[in-house]
């Protein structure tokens, strides 16, 4: 079987040590969080590294907390813990659903939310959910701490605006207002789950007196990064939360998508999926707006 090539290995116990180690390691230093992407990328030599900085010995980077007006999820929180969290299920169904179908159970038990976002896969499951929930990431870097919207982090396939020495420490997700709902759906080649998305869609809506006052739609595997389907969102605004509206928004989402054809699906099939999955995500988001704990 394939072996890892040699690398230097460090286990810093504070964020500052970790940032310093990464800064010193330069371009080829890698943060090890859950490892489910990093170890694969190193084994198949999609990435090279000279130094691996395992940040799991740094205290305080995992856990899910209710901050009152927001929820906080530590960057090292495992996907299985997000999947199992009642707080996340009640407040942020899109994230809960995305967590429950990411890869497979023994991978979810290792994978972390920070790693999933940092890896910036166009096929990310958590990415679209975090985007429609308006989540931001808190980041520690050589220049100190900062906060950025998750959707602003993605710059290209496998690329983010993060510097080599930046470490995501946690995510802040605003508490949904009354009448909010959200959902995430994806389709892999195996219809059953345990799969990589051929396409994925997350949606959130705010509904007041039967009218969608605000809707967000984010798509995965339908462009180079997880991104907002802005034209589709425009269609939703101020329209009744009815099948006609979401069908029109789904049509617009297909237009917002800019998929490529690859080994998993053709571009035209993905465009079809953009429409179908947006439709399904919106339906589910609207249905959940009656249940989400605001």
């Amino acid at each position: 079987m394939k072996r890892l090539k040699d690398f230097a290995y460090q286990e810093p116990t504070t964020l500052d040590e970790a940032v310093a180690a990464l800064a010193e390691g330069g371009d080829t230093a890698r943060v090890l969080a859950g490892g489910t992407d990093l170890i694969v990328d190193l084994k198949i030599e999609r990435l090279l590294t000279t130094a691996v900085v395992n940040i799991k010995r740094i205290p305080g980077l995992s856990g899910i907390d209710d901050l009152g007006e927001a929820s906080r999820i530590g960057a090292l929180t495992k996907v299985t813990d997000i999947e199992a969290s009642t707080l996340v299920a009640e407040r942020h169904p899109a994230l809960s659903q995305a967590a429950s179908i990411l890869a497979s159970p023994p991978v979810r038990a290792l994978a972390t939310i920070g790693g999933n976002v940092g890896r910036a896969s166009p096929a990310s499951d958590l990415g679209p959910a975090l985007i429609v929930l308006g989540a931001s990431a808190r980041i520690r870097g050589t220049g100190g701490d900062r906060e950025e919207l998750v959707e602003a982090l993605y710059t290209g396939p496998g690329r983010t605006s993060l510097a080599c020495s930046d470490i995501i420490t946690d995510f802040i997700i605003p508490k949904p207002a009354a009448g909010c709902g959200s959902a995430h759906v994806k389709l892999g080649k195996r219809g059953s789950g345990t799969d990589i998305a051929m396409a994925g869609a997350a949606a959130s809506v705010v509904i007041a007196e039967g009218v969608i006052t605000e809707g967000k739609i984010a798509l995965a595997s339908l462009g180079p990064i997880p991104f907002r389907a802005t034209n589709a969102e425009e269609v939703l605004r101020g329209r009744p939360a009815a099948e006609e509206t979401i069908a029109a928004a789904a049509e617009a989402a297909a237009g917002d998508a800019s998929p490529i054809g690859d080994i998993r699906a053709s571009a035209s099939y993905r465009t079809t999926l953009a429409r179908v999955l947006t439709l399904r995500a919106l339906r589910a988001a609207i249905a959940s707006s009656r249940e989400v704990v605001a």
Binding site: G34, G35, I39, V40, N54, P105, P106, V107, L110
Partner: peptide
């Protein structure tokens, strides 16, 4: 349960 091939 975790995939031990992905754990250092």
């Amino acid at each position: 349960p975790v995939t031990s091939c992905l754990v250092l």
